[in-house]
Design a protein around this nucleic acid. Sequence first.
DNA 1: GTCTATATGCCGATAGAC
DNA 2: GTCTATCGGCATATAGAC
Lengths: 211, 211
Amino acid sequence: MTSPMAVLGTRERLLDAGIALFWEKGYANTSMSDLLGAAKANSGSFYHFFSSKEDLLLAVLDRYLALLHPAMLALAWAGVDDPIERIFALLARYRILILQTDCTYGCPIGRLALEIGPEQEEVHRQLAKNFDGWTAAVHGCLEQAADRLPADIDRERLSGFVLAVMEGGVMLSRSHRDVKPFDQAVAELRAYFNRLLELPKKTRRKTGGKS
Amino acid sequence: MTSPMAVLGTRERLLDAGIALFWEKGYANTSMSDLLGAAKANSGSFYHFFSSKEDLLLAVLDRYLALLHPAMLALAWAGVDDPIERIFALLARYRILILQTDCTYGCPIGRLALEIGPEQEEVHRQLAKNFDGWTAAVHGCLEQAADRLPADIDRERLSGFVLAVMEGGVMLSRSHRDVKPFDQAVAELRAYFNRLLELPKKTRRKTGGKS
DNA sequence: GTCTATATGCCGATAGAC
DNA sequence: GTCTATCGGCATATAGAC
């Protein structure tokens, strides 16, 4: 029952610090004192709310997922109705993040997916859930555009492909410190979609067939 | 003037340890004692050859690049002559690495690209050079297949796209602990290539036009 | 070029008063 | 729920004998 004017509680500030710092610096490179400093909290408070640094990471990954629809997708899709354009609107949001960080941006999920060792299984389960959330969002767009796509297209597979291109493009841009690799990957993806969408109408799929 | 039977020197062993450990565990999670243990060397020897851990990382990235053609590409392309098939042979090598590591594989270059902070500029320059080496290899294949591709295709752009799909696919498979996301990304890429290759002949590009 | 011993500092986590 | 003080350990790097 938090009032709108309530100042953020300590737990919330620690969570926010984790969201920001694990994103900017990665997990191992974020120290407890970084977290405590950013959250203006102290060690005792931290361990009152979280049992360990890893425990905070899990809470952060929960929050990432919770924010996907209300924050990321809502922002990217404001004023965009066409489902295919929505996919590219997501990529455009990523482009903004890349530019805002002077091309040092790394997707927080992708970065953690490569950084965290396989023995931290629960973390990887959360990472996979996050990826699944993104894939599902893209998949939803493809379903909406199903009647404009070739009948034989595997829309599930295509949605994972879009995510792979997104993540790979971000990675290349970070190492090159240049948006160009990302832009080119997105442009090529657009070219692929254009080819899929401009196919002769006879191959079009009928929606709402036998049910 | 190393004889073929010469035992590996200390510097070489340290380099090999770096290649293996930065790959398996990442940079920050590999400690000096990990490196010294794997190389059966001691601290004094290490600092005789390298000025710091980061200095070793730079040497490792040099070596990755030096090994790309004689090791990675040679292995992947043995017995494969068709340039388009060579691209997918590269992806097939990655698939083997994923399976060999029980789906915990992360591309060493990609992992470091996301892990290393932007302030380590020289490291990122080396990472970008490595990516460029891979992109150039793919680009070379596309040039060889130029007359089978649509005239308006940007082969440079397409080669970066292939790399992005590769890196993104590996990342998704690691978090899911399952080859499937990688397989699906590769299958979709294959579908794209099939569409590009089966286009009506009238759009084919003429090689060696006006020079 | 290799060895042992160690400097120095930060790491994540804890203790216990308030 | 918040605070200060601090634990034990491991991090990278160095010193100096051989």
